[in-house]
């Protein structure tokens, strides 16, 4: 579904991603593991066009995404959930969803506010509340809901568990699990190995902008050396 090869990304003069390659099959949840500053967020931003890579290719459903701006990537079917949530704080829940709304796609489930509220019941109770008056956990739900309204085929989830209370993290894991069952393909950037283990089929480990490991979650669970070298829980 998504095929990335030899991606190189710079921030100003700093080389952030070096020859990064990865691929995602339809229906998979792929975890991108690594610590803060390893290049996880930059990888996701390079895919969705918020950051323009210097070289390399990104192919999504056999079409190139190279040098496309963020709105084109989104319209092609890649949804992005940023780590900082970036809720529109002045807009109500419904208005936040409105901004994310895109026309329906053939052969993919169509998301409406009502369907989104089935997955996130507490959002339904605060339809007219401004985003700025919601708790961190509620905002994290809203930011995912907002992206779903764009009817994405693939979702880039950047550290959805960061900064949340354990009880919310558990809810979040269940939600993502539900979305996977709905047939959504997900790239999940995470530092929290336990969280990723519950959800992902495969994992890439990234360190200093370089992919250091690629394998299934089961392989990773068995490979203590790798975990100690890069994750060290």
């Amino acid at each position: 579904m998504l095929e990335i090869s030899n991606l190189n990304t710079y921030y100003g003069r700093a080389h952030i991603l070096t020859d990064l390659s990865l691929n995602v099959q339809r229906g998979e949840v792929v975890a991108l593991l690594g610590r803060n500053g390893a290049g996880k967020s930059t990888t996701l931003k390079s895919i969705n066009g918020l950051v323009q890579p210097e070289s390399g290719s990104i192919v999504f459903e056999n079409e190139s995404l190279n040098r496309q701006s963020a709105h084109v990537v989104c319209r092609r079917g890649i949804g992005y959930v940023p780590e900082e949530r970036r809720i529109f704080t002045d807009l109500t829940v419904m208005e936040n969803l409105e901004v994310g709304t895109r026309p329906p796609r053939k052969e993919f489930p169509v998301w409406t506010p009502e369907r989104v509220f089935e997955i996130f019941p507490n959002l339904a109770e605060m339809r007219n509340r401004p985003g700025g008056q919601m708790s961190g956990g509620e905002q994290q739900m809203l930011t995912i809901a907002r992206t779903l309204m764009g009817n994405p085929k693939l979702v880039l989830l950047d550290e959805p568990s960061e900064g949340l209370a354990p009880v919310i993290v558990q809810q979040m894991a269940k939600t993502i699990h539900d979305l996977k069952r709905e047939g959504l393909t997900i790239i999940l950037s995470e530092q929290n190995l336990r969280f990723a283990t519950k959800l992902a089929d495969r994992a890439y480990i990234i360190e200093k902008g370089v992919i250091q490991y690629e394998g299934t979650m089961d392989d990773l669970a068995a490979d203590e050396d790798v975990r100690n070298a890069y994750l060290t829980v």
Binding site: A165, P166, V167, Q170, R194, V233
Partner: peptide, 15 residues
Amino acid sequence: RMVYLGTETEEIAHA
């Protein structure tokens, strides 16, 4: 445990 830690406290705290 109800409002914050959740049900998996044991696992989390001892992992």
